[in-house]
Design a protein around this nucleic acid. Structure first.
Length: 631
DNA sequence: GCCGGAAAGT
DNA sequence: ACTTTCCGGC
């Protein structure tokens, strides 16, 4: 009886089989997805499409809105017709016996992976953790070309980021693939058909979704894309283009488009005021872009040639640095960690300091890439020096622990953090950084830890604090940026939040208000409360900007040095019961390193990671670009 | 309805 | 690795 499935799919518009988008060689390198996303054969475990991909596909299509649709804001979706969804899924997988019970079991497995969460209290309602997805996915993948559609809804009120276009599928799942660069190169075929499978009727089933999708994207252009109900998806180009070849400062595509989508849960524009600079997507990926122009990197160690390669306290440098951080945070609602900073990003403010190159702006919109992956880090100071050769490595998610385990595990986490949070230190002196970089250790800390945390959120990460830090709970990732001073509406809904964290965005910086100066940024970004104000509760009382800067910088450096280890993770323990607040945010981020699956680098870079990430990113970027070019 | 363990299939 | 199937518990 399975046969009956076939009919259903009729619904979908079948467009062309493969859309070019992806594989399109024409584009140069464009492709974007990793095959594995669709890879039937290759994938070891999953034969074809993964459930969550499938869900996203359905979500993106209007045809299926009656059976499944986005709801709420965050990435939440509701299965309106469970049986139908199950049927469709069954059809796709050729499992006629599929039913909601089974399907839901499969969805439940995503909980541990953090791909999805259940929205408590709402029947048939689940929520995507785009955070993870995005980051993961996008990092290198270039989805540039194509892909993504589903947008997750963003949470906080005002800003939402949009999801990158492509199917997320890629992302998560295959950690392996991600790692290997080679992947990218081959992507062309994926589209060929992935869909459906072999199921009996091959005819039909398959492709409806995919094909349709593809067609849409391409054909319609970005606009169309949005149109779809879903969350707004970005044009792929923008997203990934960066990778592909966009390293140039002058990108062809200038504008950041932001589309406000009414429906979509994910609004696009993160920054209201600025207009869009941010553009698109959330992804941090940007940072990867190789573009030197902006260089926000403070660290001297980095070789990047950017403007000032080393961080000096020149105003400009500072600005850049700050901007970068700030932006990243703001722009993306995602957790800051995840994104690291984008070098490219420029701040939207009108008065923004003149950068050397205006071009930077474009990048913004760019792609979201999650940089998180830890690329090889640069030897920045020579700290550790060797990092691994491999350019990227990431893992997906942390291993899911069983509840029980999780609970038990929690304790672990705490310990881990210790390492060092102390980075904060800073030196009072100026030139020392170097030393610190190199050696790292000797830092003097002037301030109390709290400061640090607040600033960076850092390193410590998660672990210990999950609970305590409310403000961060999630994160380190998300909220850190938020500054009290800034007026942001970030609230989160109690309901959804669990994931929201993911999306949660800090607030947008007040556009105009900035006052314009670079400095203001600092306040914003860096430290939420404490630092900005000279007085802060913790101990950070008044520190001159420069010092702060330095400190920060030094930290960064240090972090880089530390390298990745952060994984500590968590996975943690969350109590099961709680609905609402799941702190998972933090967890998410870090993604336990232990698991293999985690991407850790990508997504969850622990706070400290950011910095290092940045450097890594750059490096990675460079590599990517090289690779791409090859194409 | 939802959760998650366990076993098994792919 | 991911899913499907089954199932007991909440």
């Amino acid at each position: 009886m399975s046969s009956f499935y076939g009919e259903e799919r009729g619904v979908g518009p079948t467009i062309h089989p493969h859309s070019t988008r992806i594989g399109t060689p024409g584009t140069s390198c464009g492709f974007a997805f990793p095959e594995w996303a669709y890879k039937p054969e290759s994938s070891p475990g999953s034969r074809q499409i993964q459930l969550w991909h499938f869900i996203l596909e359905l979500l993106r299509k209007e045809e299926y809105h009656d059976v499944i649709a986005w709801q709420g804001d965050y990435g939440e979706f509701v299965i309106k017709d469970p049986d139908e969804v199950a049927r469709l899924w069954g059809a796709r997988k050729c499992k006629p016996q599929m039913n909601y019970d089974k399907l839901s079991r499969a969805l439940r497995y995503y909980y541990n992976k953090r791909i999805l969460h259940k929205t408590k209290g709402k029947r048939f309602t689940y929520k995507f953790n785009f955070n993870k997805l995005v980051l993961v996915n996008y990092p290198f993948i270039d989805m540039g070309s194509g892909v993504p559609q589903s947008a997750p809804p963003v949470p906080t009120g005002g800003t939402h980021f949009r999801f990158p276009p492509s199917t997320p599928s890629e992302v998560l799942s295959s950690s392996e693939e991600l790692r290997s660069p080679g992947i990218f190169s081959s992507m062309g075929r994926r589209m060929a058909r992935g869909s459906v499978s072999d199921c009996s009727d091959g005819t039909s089933t398959n492709s409806e979704l995919e094909e349709a999708v593809g067609a849409e994207d391409r054909g319609g252009g970005p606009e169309r894309a949005f149109r779809s109900l879903l969350p707004p998806r970005m044009p792929h180009d923008s997203l990934f283009r960066v990778y592909s070849g966009a390293p140039n400062p002058g990108l062809p595509r200038p504008a950041p488009r932001v589309h406000p989508e009414p429906l979509s849960p994910f609004p696009i524009s993160p920054l209201p005021g600025s207009g869009g600079l941010l553009a698109p997507t959330l992804s941090p990926a940007l940072s990867m872009t190789p573009t030197p122009h902006l260089a926000y990197t403070p660290s001297p160690s980095m070789s990047s040639p950017m403007v000032g390669s080393h961080f000096s306290f020149n105003p400009e440098d500072m600005k850049h640095y700050l901007q970068a951080h700030t932006q990243s945070v703001y722009n993306y609602h995602l957790s800051p960690r995840a994104f690291l900073h984008y070098p490219n990003i420029v701040i939207p403010q009108p008065h923004r300091p003149t950068l050397e190159k205006p071009a930077a702006a474009h990048h913004l919109h760019g792609p979201p890439m999650p940089v998180s992956h830890s690329l090889s880090q640069q030897p920045g100071g020579g700290e550790e020096g060797h990092q691994h050769p491999s350019p990227f490595k990431f893992k997906l998610q942390p291993p899911p622990l069983g509840r029980k385990q999780r609970e038990a595990g929690s304790s672990l986490a705490a310990s881990s953090s210790s390492s060092s949070s102390s980075q904060s230190s800073s030196f009072t002196g100026s030139g020392h950084m170097t030393s610190s970089l190199l050696s790292g250790p000797p830092k003097i800390k002037v301030e109390p830890i709290s400061d640090i945390e607040s600033e960076e959120d850092v390193e410590v990460t998660d672990i210990s604090e999950e609970d305590e830090m409310n403000h961060n709970d999630e994160g380190d990732m998300f909220t850190p940026t938020a500054d009290p001073s800034a007026p942001l509406p970030q609230h989160s809904n109690p309901d959804d939040d669990p994931d929201d964290e993911v999306f949660k965005t800090p607030a947008t910086p007040p556009p105009g208000s900035g006052g314009g100066l670079a400095f203001p940024l600092i306040g914003v970004k860096s430290e939420p409360g404490s630092q900005a104000a000279p007085i802060s509760p913790g101990g950070t009382r008044c520190i001159p900007l420069k010092l702060r800067f330095k400190r920060r910088w030094s930290k960064d450096q240090k972090m880089e040095a530390d390298g990745e280890r952060d994984e500590a993770e968590d996975k943690k323990v969350r109590a099961e019961g709680e609905e609402e607040v799941e702190r998972r945010g933090s967890e998410v981020e870090n993604g336990g390193g232990r698991g293999e699956g985690v991407i850790l680098g990508l997504m969850l870079p622990p706070p400290p990671t950011q910095r290092r990430a940045s450097s890594e990113l750059q490096r990675a970027t460079a590599q990517l670009s090289l690779e791409n070019s090859g194409c």
